[in-house]
Amino acid sequence: MVELLVGVFLLFMIIGALIALETTDLLSAVISMGAVGAALSICFLLVGAPDIAITQMVVEVLSLVILIRATIRRDLTTIEGDRDFFGLMATLAMICGLLIFGFSAFLRLPPFGSPAMSQSFQAPARQYLNCGLKETGAANIVAAVILDYRGYDTLGEATVLFTSILGALAILRVYSRKKKQ
């Protein structure tokens, strides 16, 4: 079931990426890239990585806002005339569905003080807390997790920081460009 759903979303992502490549309108391309990102987030959720899904969603929303802000000055598309009835009804139905989903999800939250992870006995967090000091020798359990158990994650974060500095330097550098002229 999960494989089938992931396959459907992968197909959706391929179609969205092709539309983004082929369309001539910049705003449509940006919005189709946003649809691809949202489908990728749902895929992460389906295969059991909720934290990556949240990160992907946040980055996708942020980059969509930035890209729309960047492209909207270039070619502004405005819709003239009245809003059609079907679009309005579809939007309202979508909002109602989201509302019902959010409310039922809120009712199913575990009670305050008993996290969902504590209900399973093989949860990694339990092992970190019980054997963290013995296995790593670090009294600060946060340092033990981010630098020993999850060191690969931290390496990725350091790489993100490094790459962002590289990008900022490459964009804002004026010296060598002046020399060439």
Binding site: T136, G137, A139, L147, D148
Partner: peptide, 19 residues
């Protein structure tokens, strides 16, 4: 990782301080 003197020392946690 665990020196005989105990855990709460500056040189105690292996590669974590170096990282």
């Amino acid at each position: 990782k665990n020196w005989p003197t105990g855990n709460f020392h500056l040189f105690s946690a292996g590669i974590i301080p170096l990282c």
